[in-house]
Every structure is written in C-alpha cells, then in structure tokens.
Design a protein around this nucleic acid. Structure first.
Lengths: 203, 203, 203, 203
DNA sequence: CATGAATGAGGTTTCATTCAT
DNA sequence: AATGAATGAAACCTCATTCAT
C-alpha cells in the first residue's frame, strides 16, 4: 500500500503507463480495468482514487502527452534548414521513434483507433484540431517556399504532399505495430522509404 | 413466423452487411450484437440462427470477401503493362475504391484493426499469409524487372518499395475514414499523391 | 424460464410486487436488486429486461398505482353525504386499508420515505402535486360547506383541518407499520380515533 | 497535524451534527460517510478516529440525545396543570419545536425512519422501550384522571387517545419536513390543529 | 426462421473500512 | 488527531448467449 505523496504520484504514473499499454494493446472497449490495475500493481479501487472512471483514465493519457507527433513535427518545421531537409528530418525522427519508442507508437495507435472516444470531449477534439491546423499551416508554408526556391517540383500542390506524408506516417505506424502479423514487414529500411518520398518531391 | 428460403438468405446478407458496418465503426469489442441486429432489422436471436456466435459473424465477414485488396492488386500485377504503369494502376484503383466504396474501406479498416482476432483462426491467418506472400512475390518481381529495364531507380530495394506502398495505402484508408475529424483532409487529389510516389521511384 | 406473453407479464407483475415489498421494507438505497429478483423468482438480469434500471423499477411502482390514497379520498369527497359524514367515511376506509392492506401501506410508506427520489422526476412530481392540489380544493370546499350549514364549527379554517387530517393519516400509517417496535400500539381502536377527530370538528 | 483536546472535541461535535443532518436527509443507507465528513469539514478517516464505524456514528447520535420528545413530554406530564392543559402544553411545545428546531425534527425523523437499525442494539431498544412505557403510563394516568374529573369525555379509552396523539405528532413531523413538496402545507396554524384535537377530547 | 424472454458471466463503479504517515 | 491513499466487498449494469414458442 502506497502512503507518501511520492508513492501516490508513482501510482498515478504507473496507472497512466499501464493504461497506455493495455488500452493500446486491446483497444478501449476490450481493455479491462482489472488488467490496468494488475499491470500497475494496485487494485481496481486505486484507479478510482486517481481517476473519475475508465474514460477519465483514458483521456488523462491524452491530456498528458497529447500527440507528441505534433510537437516533434512543429519543432523541425520551425528550424532553419531547407524544406526538403526538414521533411527528411521529420520522417527520420518520426519513423525512428515509431520503430523504437513503444510508448510513442502506442500513443499514435490509440489516437488512430479511438477517434470516436476523443470526439466525445469537444474540448479535447478542439485542441487536437487546433494543433493540427497549426502544423498544417507551417507545413504548407514550407512546401510553398520549397517550390518557390526551386527545390520542390512545381506541378504539385502542398495539400497533396501533406496527405501522402500523413498517410505514410500513419501507415508505417500501423505496419510497425503489426510486424508479427505482417510477413513482408520483416526488416524495414526506413531511410530508403524516405529517399523514395523525397525523390518524388524534388523539382 | 414462416419464412421462405429467400427471406432467410436476405436476412443472412443483411446481417453480414450490418455486421461489416457496425464492426468497422466501433471495432469488434465495442460493437454490440444488438446494434448489428438493429441495423439489419432483426432481433439478436436471429443472429444465432445464421452464425454460431459473435466471433463467427465477424469471421464470416472475412470469409465472404477476404481481402478484396489482394484480389485487386493481384489482377493488375499479372497484366502486361510496365512496372510503373502497374503501380499507378493499382494505386489509382485502390485509392479510388477507398474514397468511394464504404464497404471496401470498412473491410480494410477491420482487417487493419482486428489483426488479433483474425490471428485467432489459424486457418484464416494462414490464408491471409499465403495471399500476402503471393502478392509480395509478384510485387518484388515487378519492381526488380522495372529496375532491370531501367524504368525504376536502381538504388532502392524492392522491400522498401513494398513498405512505403503499403504504408501509403493503409494510411490513406485511415485518413479517408476520418475525414470528419481531420481538418486537412478536405479535398484530396489522389492523382497528385500517386504522381509523387511514382516520381520517387523513377530512375 | 418464462416464455409466453402471459409468462412475461406475470414476471413483470412479480417484479413490481417484489419491488414494492423490498423497497418498502428496506428503503430504496438499502434494497438490493438481487433481493427483488429473488423475491420475484427470477435472476437479476430479468429486471433489466423489464425495467431500465433500479430507479426505473422504483418509479414504475409509482406510475402503476400512484397514490391510491388520493383515489380513495377523491371518490368519497365527490359523493353526496354530509361533510362530517364524508370525513368519517374517508378515515374509516383509509385507516382500515392501512391496517389490512399491506400493499397500500407499503405504497404509502414508500411515498413518505422516498420523497427525494420522486423529486428527481419533475414529471412525476408535477403529477403528484396536481393530484394533491385537486384533492385539496375538494377538501377545502367540503369543510367550508360544512361550516356554512352549521355542521362544522366556524372558528377554524379549512387549512388547519387538512393539516391535522393529513398528519393523522400519515402518522397512523407509520404506527401501523411499526407495531412490532411500538409498545403502546398493541390494539388500536380506529373508530375511537375517528370519533375524537370528528368531535373536534363539530360545531 | 497537532490538535488540542478542544479541537478534537469540536470535531467530534461537528461529526455528530453533520451526521444528524446527512442521515436525516438521506436516510442511513443512502448517506455516505464522505457526505458526513464533508459536512463536518474533515476527511472520512477522521470519522474512524471518533467512531468505530458508520453504525456507531449513527447510534452515537441517539445516545447523545435519546428522544428529546420523551423528555419534553415527561416534564409536562409531571407538572401540576389539568389533563387537557397538559395535552395542550405538550402539543404546543412539540409542534413548535418541530417547526423551528431542525435538529429536533431530524432526530424524530431518524427515529421514525430507522427503527430497524435502532432495534439492532438491544440495549438501546430496551432503553427506548422503557422510556416509552414510562411515558405511556403517565399519559394513561393523565387521561383517566381527566375522565374522572369530568374534563375529558368518558366514551373513549385512553389507549386511543395515545394513538391519535402519537399519530398526529409523527404525521406533523413528516409534513413539516416535506413542506417543499406538499403544496397544501404552506402556512400551518398549529394552534388551530391543537384546538381541534382538544375539542375532540372534551367531555 | 425469428422473436421475446431470461440467464449468467464478467465488467464498472461505489463506498465502508484500513492504515502508514 | 487527522489525512491521503489504497483495499476489497458488494452493488449495479451490460451484453453475449440460450431457449421455449
């Protein structure tokens, strides 16, 4: 039984961690609170000390690290390298994270899978929308400046780039999470994937 | 209540159709059989006449039209056009289907989301694996022949092409299903997306 | 397991009956649905076929026979006997019912005890208020006509009569339900109680 | 947190006060210790320092001021006024208390409502029974002396008087507690109620 | 074939109670 | 003396499943 303030905080973190794992493994509906409690080394009751209910625990996961993907992307978009350089950097970082950081992957998968739950909370939905809109604008600007300086081909519109870029990341996240089941996904050379994409954008 | 054989068959089809919709909307665990029954215009009991249980209904969805994606891909892979032509054709068809055919999209989403359930049925899992391996081999051959004839750049390996190709399709399927929530996904010009990808592969 | 329409209706009635008994014995909060189910000879699940939840079962009890006290009173108030005659009749009937009709008593006790729950349902609250207002008006009229024709003393106002009248009935209902615990309530001669009250009203 | 003896005593009193309010508002079963703690300005844990458990807190309420109604009644019964004068005095005091003293009313309501809990403690039950028997005897004597001296009508038996007297008090306590819900109970002239009752008893 | 009724397992939630600090 | 954290029993409730009709 945990007693001190630090112990309590530890329990809180354990629950978030366990929640992320269980929810992303099984999905929200199939996840049992007893699983989460067990994984966190406490009893079900403890969850209700730290969170209002199952959904509140789930949403706390999101509030804690809402879409670290956006943070990653935004930082790079705001640095000073060239447009294609930025895209390469982002993809390198993100695909690398997807491969190696199970929590990052879990977070992404959850966000992909449980869109319905998120939309229950207008406030959170709003937040995500704003973040996305924000990154979107930076991304568009970047592409357009790349076109202007002759680095990026001028026969494509920025919107299509965003779509293929997003699709690739999301798709890769899925593939990386399902390596066991996907026979062809054995060894993935992300650098080559990035090369292909960059090449497709070059002027 | 006396029913004719046609009525029964109609109910069966309704249940499959309803099942596909509900399962793909909510995911397997969150989907309630009462939802399915309601969507099919019958009561829960009827499901148990046509299917052994919830999982059996779910798997029947797959047995009915297992992975139409592979069918589509395979047909094109076996025709006589050039490698890049084939890739363009496949992407054109698949992305188009994703955009316009809700059942196709639902089917893909389910297969993406419920990998675990599918893998519960070794027979089905085996089948999927074989199909994938089959398509994979054809795909690899195609890329390699493209490289050989100078159409495709020679500094990439076929495996990476498959990965980026798969990721794109899966990611696009996700984006297309979530248009309501994704602000940037308003109007998507799939042709441009394809152009970018093809360009990236060119020698 | 009940199967026919009549069986189902029987179960429904059993549940209402059991609910009335258990709720009035233990109070809403302390009553367990398993008690109700057991008393009705079914399992807990059956309750949820017939009612939405615990509160819905409780409220169904009320909707079924909302305050039979009002019905009883109203019928007498509208007949043609003299004011004091009516009062005597009402008290005779009601106190008799309280003594002999366990369901009537249970119903009254529930309504007394669970005012809070009732006020959760504005519609029901409204209904009760209207019924009461209705009876109240008839009662006031009756007293005033009794005063006018010289049967009832003219130094009291009708409102006070209603209050003492209501208090007596409610109080008696309580005493009658607690005979086991109340040492003095052994043999109660309700006729004498009525006599005292009537005498107090006489001109 | 260091507390003085007075602080502790204050907490104890706060808990009793809060308990009385919460228990009488919600009933024993529906009352949560967290409600009580909150009302007393402490946390749940504190309750367990001062009382063994929930029931112990409840019973302490009674042990503290067991049935002030009996005290009130007994004092008057033992004074030297005439029988009908005593009855008038008792009713005047009690109905007044019910109207103005929320704690008195709460106490009565609790005792009325939670008879079963009280009877769990033989010692307390015994005490209440004795008090009641005691008052009962004094009351009977009073009535009979009233009959003997010609003040009270001789066609009624003392037992019936006790019953209607008790019913009135209990019923009035109920009505007074539910004024919000009872439309007719707006302004209650208790003196008139008493007059009616006294008049009913007069020879 | 299908329905309506009921079961029962298993999940979520509440809350009295315990206990280290 | 009191708090904050956690436990665990027991309640409510959901829902896949069964089954007489």
């Amino acid at each position: 039984m945990r007693r001190t303030r630090e112990d309590s905080e530890a329990t809180h973190q354990q629950l978030l961690k366990a929640g992320l794992r269980i929810f992303s493994e099984k999905g929200y509906a199939a996840a049992r609170l007893s699983d989460v409690a067990y994984a966190a080394g406490v009893t079900r009751g403890a969850i209700y000390w730290h969170f209002k209910n199952k959904k509140d625990l789930f949403l706390a996961l999101f509030r804690k690290n809402v879409d670290p993907l956006f943070d990653t992307i935004k930082d790079v978009l705001e640095d000073k390298s060239s447009p294609l350089g930025k895209i390469r950097t982002i993809l390198t970082i993100v695909l690398e994270k997807i491969d190696t950081d199970a929590d990052f992957r879990a977070n992404q998968n959850l966000e992909f899978a449980e869109t319905k739950l998120l939309s229950d909370i207008p406030e959170l939905q709003q937040y995500l929308t704003n973040r996305a809109a924000n990154s979107y604008k930076l991304f568009i600007d970047m592409i357009e400046s790349g076109v202007k300086n002759g680095e990026i081909r001028n026969d494509i519109d920025a919107n299509s780039v965003i779509n293929i870029f997003s699709a690739m990341i999301r798709g890769y996240c899925f593939i990386s999470s399902r390596k066991d089941f996907l026979t062809f996904a054995g060894d993935i050379d992300t650098e080559q994937m990035i090369n292909i994409f960059i090449q497709g954008l070059k002027a």
